[in-house]
Computed example of a mutant assay.
Amino acid sequence: MTFRLMPIYRLGGWGAAASMVAICTLITLQVLFRLLDAVLVMAGSSRLGLEITGVSELASFLLVGATFLGMAYTFTHHAHIRMSLVIQRLPAAVRAFTELACLLIASALNALLCVSLWQLMQESLEYDDVSSGLLAIPLWIPQLVLLIGMVMMSLALTEALIDTARQALQAPQRFQAPDDEAGHD
């Protein structure tokens, strides 16, 4: 299966990777600052008290980016958990329409989630909602990242749905599920 919007999904993958690197960097710095304070206290000196305020909150918002920005990328690389154990044992024609039904359901649920996330983000903007932790981060920012990730996932599901529908309608007896294909991009 060829995904025409792969550059967009790849960009999401890079965003997810950058989020993970940022989480690791924040936590590593926080640990190093605490270690430095411990060494200074052991040496008889006073603590410097260096810390990153709200590191847990920042890490949790970055985790949203790491999770949702990477969804379409992992889907296009067939890295999501799938129920292929049952589906791969079906005859090719039945497998084609089963895959099509699964993609239709996933697309519908994903579209519903996108609409709900859009409404939630609009509400957060309207009421100027901010996070309740040490940092007052406007909630629309992580919600926007979540929405972008889900929109990319919708695009990937739509591409897979169109390709699967084409195969299912033209030659269902020769259908190959994405897990059966060799040489994933």
Rank of each mutant, 00 (worst) to 15 (best):
T67P: 08
N110D: 04
A93L: 09
S107C: 15
L69K: 14
F75I: 03
R89W: 03
Y73V: 09
W118L: 07
E123H: 14
L117I: 00
Q119M: 11
E123L: 15
W118A: 10
L103H: 07
R95W: 06
F68H: 12
L113R: 02
P91K: 03
L112G: 14
G70N: 07
R82F: 00
A72I: 08
L120F: 12
L117R: 00
F75N: 11
V86H: 14
L104A: 14
T74W: 02
I87E: 13
G70E: 10
L100T: 09
Q88N: 15
L109S: 13
A92C: 05
Y73N: 10
V94F: 03
A79V: 00
C114A: 14
H77K: 02
F75R: 06
H78W: 00
I87Q: 13
S84E: 12
Q122T: 11
A72H: 09
L90F: 08
A96Q: 03
S107Q: 09
S116E: 12
L109Y: 05
A92P: 07
A96Y: 01
A72G: 05
L69T: 12
L100P: 05
L117V: 01
L113C: 12
C114S: 11
F75E: 09
L100D: 08
T74M: 04
C114Y: 03
V94N: 01
A79F: 00
V94Q: 14
L104C: 13
V94H: 11
V115G: 01
L113P: 04
Q119Y: 13
H78I: 04
A92K: 08
Y73H: 15
R89Q: 14
L117D: 01
Q119L: 12
L104K: 02
A93P: 02
S84I: 04
C114D: 12
L85C: 10
I81A: 00
L120P: 01
M121S: 05
M83Y: 10
L117S: 02
L120G: 13
E99K: 04
I81M: 01
G70R: 08
T98R: 10
N110S: 14
F68L: 14
A79R: 00
A101Q: 08
W118T: 07
A101L: 14
R95E: 11
H77E: 02
H78T: 07
F75G: 02
I87T: 14
L120M: 13
L103A: 10
E123Q: 15
L103F: 09
F75D: 01
M71V: 15
I105F: 10
P91Q: 08
A79M: 00
L104S: 12
I81T: 01
Q119V: 06
A108R: 05
L85Y: 12
L104Y: 04
W118R: 04
H80V: 00
S107I: 07
A92M: 05
L109K: 02
I87Y: 13
I81V: 12
V115P: 01
